[in-house]
Design a protein around this nucleic acid. Structure first.
Length: 270
DNA sequence: CGACACACCTGGATGC
DNA sequence: TGCATCCAGGTGTGTC
């Protein structure tokens, strides 16, 4: 489900209810999600005050002085702030019960998400091989251009590789390449420096815009307050197979690239 | 290293 | 209505 805009929407939604509060209790209704939930979540986290709710790539971090809880939403995960007395649903896998009398509750039908622990001063292995944050200043077209040198894989797969740049998933990869006028199947190493500058600009613009719209809701994404994301209304190509291009009217096409569906306009993209 | 297929899991949509 | 099939926003792992 969530790409960077949905994770950032989630972060902003929970932060006011979590930051500065003590996690009084952790309720685990399963012992594992994608991976086993480490003991530290039960032994270290309770009693700790959350100093900040941060995001790195598509991971959320709840920082405390004892360490940080590392959360990933996977494909179908979502977080909500609830009354802990509210009966949990079938896929509500854990709660962090706060001293405010509220609870942060995680729901994830497919269980591709994870809940892990990062000790103070350490960087979790899952965070060690990540590329730059696309909304930070150290990311630009020249980084993409240099990194793409000699790569034969498609530019769409390249942009979705989290070691190249983080946060761009299947929806926004198609949207970015449409906006930049680049065919998704083009070899990453065959895209010009000028065109990468445009791609970098569009990544920033589209992710920013999607965040301001509360993300994209296609099937089941909800913000912590229960609101859907409104960027779906602004999608130019994603999930619009055989519908007219919003720019030129040509029928939008789809093709599988790297096991994922890609969408593009045959007239606007080359 | 890079490229790629596969795995994990459930639920909704579709087709017969 | 029931059942089979396919598809879905992510990403680590194994193989070549």
């Amino acid at each position: 489900m969530p790409e960077l805009p949905e994770v950032e929407t989630t972060r902003r939604g929970i932060a006011p209810f979590v930051t500065g509060h003590v996690v009084e209790r952790v309720v685990l209704r399963r012992k594992d999600l994608r991976w086993p939930i480490p003991r530290a979540i039960s032994t270290q986290l309770p009693g700790q005050r959350v100093n900040a709710v941060a995001r790195r790539a598509k991971y959320l971090l709840l920082h405390t002085t004892a360490g940080s809880a590392l959360l990933h939403l996977g494909m179908s995960g979502s977080l909500r702030v609830v009354d802990p007395a509210l009966a949990p649903g079938q896929h509500d896998h854990y709660d962090f019960v706060l001293d405010s009398g509220r609870a942060l509750r995680f729901n994830d039908p497919r269980r591709f998400g994870c809940l892990l622990w990062q000790a103070p001063g350490e960087v979790h292995p899952l965070l060690q091989n990540l590329g730059p944050e696309p909304l930070n200043d150290d990311f630009d077209g020249d980084w993409l251009w240099h990194t793409s040198h000699g790569r034969s894989a498609s530019v769409k797969s390249f942009l979705m590789d989290q070691s190249i740049v983080v946060g761009v998933g299947n929806i926004y990869a198609s949207e970015v390449l449409f906006a930049a006028g680049v065919h998704p199947k083009r070899a990453a190493g065959a895209v010009s420096r000028t065109r990468y500058a445009r791609i970098a600009t569009e990544i920033r613009r589209i992710l920013d815009r999607a965040i301001s719209r509360g993300g994209t809701t296609l099937r089941d994404f909800i913000a912590p307050d229960g609101a859907p994301g409104y960027f779906e209304q602004e999608l130019m190509v994603y999930d619009r197979s055989s519908q007219p291009c919003r720019i030129c009217g040509t029928s939008i096409r789809s093709v599988v690239i790297g096991q994922r569906m890609a969408y593009w306009c045959p007239r606007c993209q080359h």
